[in-house]
């Protein structure tokens, strides 16, 4: 299970500052269990965003956003509901956000910070990995995680070793920042590339006492 925590209202408002029409996509897997995608939270947020003059064009729930088949059935088939939105706010762990950003050409924003791995991982971790860092920046990086896709986990990339889209570390390995650059260009968000991203808080990766006390965390208790 991936433990996620809804970002603060201020943080979400900041992320959505430039957006007008927003679609909510919620995962009912781990994030539902962590209450970062519960109906109550979504209702609260919808209310707050509406009072800021935003339009919420609709909502779809998917049982597991890390499951490609479910995403295709439940999300892609409801295209009429999200087609008109400027962006998709995803209530899930970092795997879910990256899964969605990979299949649609729209801006995808994370509503939560993914904190730590608490038992089992989602079923789509292969290509779109989440480091459970608690500092989700997928809103600035076109839904591609710089921590896991860059060999140096750089927040301001690419480094000088990036060569024609390839990483210096290994032939055939994609440069994560090149992928981010290409995708930001494709969705007209290159301005996000220019932002200098704030430092990562590594202490957020440490599991909290209450998490460590849960049965799914300490399986041998």
């Amino acid at each position: 299970m991936l433990v996620s925590e809804l970002k603060s209202m201020d943080e979400i408002k900041e992320i959505l500052k430039q957006e007008q029409k927003i679609f909510f996509l919620a995962c009912l897997g781990c994030s539902d269990a962590c209450k970062s995608s519960s109906k109550e939270e979504l209702d609260n947020l919808e209310e707050a965003l509406k009072s800021d003059g935003k339009t919420i064009t609709g909502r779809v729930d998917v049982d597991f956003l890390c499951n490609k088949v479910l995403v295709k059935i439940k999300f892609l088939r409801n295209k009429d509901k999200w087609e008109g939105a400027d962006s998709i706010l995803v209530f899930s762990c970092g795997v879910g956000v990256q899964a969605v950003s990979k299949i649609i050409r729209k801006t995808v924003y994370p509503a939560a910070n993914t904190k730590n791995l608490g038992g089992f991982q989602g079923v789509w971790p292969g290509e779109e990995r989440c480091a459970q860092c608690g500092n989700c920046v997928l809103d600035l990086t076109a839904g591609i995680c710089p921590y896991t896709s860059c060999a140096k986990s750089m927040l301001n990339g690419p480094c000088g070793g990036s060569n024609e889209g390839e990483c210096e570390v290994e032939k055939g390995r994609d440069c994560g920042w090149y992928l981010i650059y290409e995708r930001l260009k494709a969705i007209n968000k290159l301005a996000d590339f220019k932002k200098i991203r704030p430092l990562r808080d590594h202490s957020r990766m440490l599991p909290k006492k209450e998490t460590r006390g849960l049965d799914f965390y300490a399986i041998d208790r």
């Binding site: 301001n156 990339g157 690419p158 000088g160 990036s162 060569n163 024609e164 889209g165 920042w177 090149y178 650059y181 290159l190 590339f193 220019k194 200098i196």
Partner: peptide, 19 residues
């Protein structure tokens, strides 16, 4: 700081340069 004028593609490196 440093920059690589021969980088391919150049644009992401130019943005980094600007940063």
């Amino acid at each position: 700081a440093v920059v690589n004028p021969g980088a391919e593609p150049l644009e992401p490196q130019l943005i980094k340069f600007e940063q």
